[in-house]
Design a protein around this nucleic acid. Structure first.
Lengths: 191, 191
DNA sequence: CAATAATTGTTTCGACTCGATACATAAATG
DNA sequence: CATTTATGTATCGAGTCGAAACAATTATTG
């Protein structure tokens, strides 16, 4: 039924908007929360303005301003990248990590948990499918977790004294790295 | 699993944001699309600035500006209400209805349709539950369809020469009225 | 290898978003 | 009828966001 899809589109817009406007509480604005949230989940190759720009499907200029605000407020630091002299490496400060413990998205999380309970798992599958289609239609990237990537080699980093290895960037990966999301992530074809 | 709820919250935020930024194409901005969309679905008792304010969980000032822009662009008309001399009745112009045929939310609709197909019905149930919890937590209103309301009397408007009747506002209701969403809608207890 | 093209990041601009506040009018309450 | 509440508008300030212009760096190409 098309009417179900239409109803779902309206519901998604409304839920997203409600949750987003709830976020104005606290020290950050919605876009700033989204950026800080991303930076806390992204691996070290993905904590750059450009990766964030792609994740949020926005423009470099907008991202630059958001990051400026976060730096001014002391939640992130920025320093020139060594890998690429055009790029900037971003890190979250301790103050930033502490702030995330009160991330207003947690309101939505508890709402979902109480509304759905164990059915959350099923919802997750469906929302993932929608996001994937949406991202593909926008010529964007999925930003999946490192260990789900076709370039990820589990237990393949012995030469680098690390547990794992990225075949695209040709660098060693720690266990922590492998659980974070990455701008380069590409789905691995089903075995 | 709490992690499913967390993943879902992130997915909902991301889908909502992606879809919203896609909307900048065309003649309207996201908030203006949301307002025009609401006005096309709302019944005649709910097409006022205040009802729209509640629907969007925003403030009267913000709504006023959005409506000003829509009127300036010729998509709605505003005139003082006769029922309540403080209120303003809003109507969509033909130009407004025509614009809605190209509502950018239709991109999301087709994306959902292709990604989920018939499973859309199940998603709808889950999203409705989430929205209801979210709205209740915000002390807001559901804005459900008129005919699902506890004040709706099917085939009860004979004295008004209309098919149906609203027991709260004490007015007759057409078939068309009964299918629209209403600011006063309250769930009917299960029979 | 040098010229050209593409990428990254910042800055500036203008229109819109949005909450907060103040104000005027009208309705509801007592 | 006085007080309180509700509705709508106008204004302010900080943020959001896309677009365009610019500088620096990297990638590509001939």
């Amino acid at each position: 039924m098309v009417s179900d899809a239409l109803a779902n589109a309206n519901l998604l817009e409304r839920i997203g908007h409600l949750s987003r406007t709830e976020e104005k509480i606290g020290d950050l604005y919605p876009a700033q929360w989204a950026a800080l949230r991303y930076l806390s989940q992204a691996n070290r190759f993905s904590r750059t303005p450009m990766a964030l720009t792609r994740y949020l499907s926005t423009t470099r200029g907008t991202t630059s301003q958001t990051l400026m605000a976060l730096e001014r407020k002391g939640y992130i630091t920025r320093k020139p990248s060594k890998r690429d002299k055009r790029a900037v490496d971003i890190d979250i400060t301790r103050k930033g990590r502490s702030l995330l413990e009160n991330d207003p998205i947690l309101h939505l999380v508890t709402t979902i948990q109480t509304a759905l309970g164990k059915d959350s798992a099923r919802l997750r599958v469906q929302l993932s499918l929608i996001l994937e289609s949406l991202v593909r239609a926008n010529d964007g990237r999925r930003f999946g977790e490192c260990h789900t990537c076709r370039h990820f080699r589990r237990d393949g980093g012995s030469a680098y004294k690390t547990p794992h290895f990225c075949g695209l960037l040709e660098v060693g990966l720690s266990d922590g790295d492998s659980e974070k999301i990455c701008v380069e992530q590409e789905s691995r074809p089903a075995a």
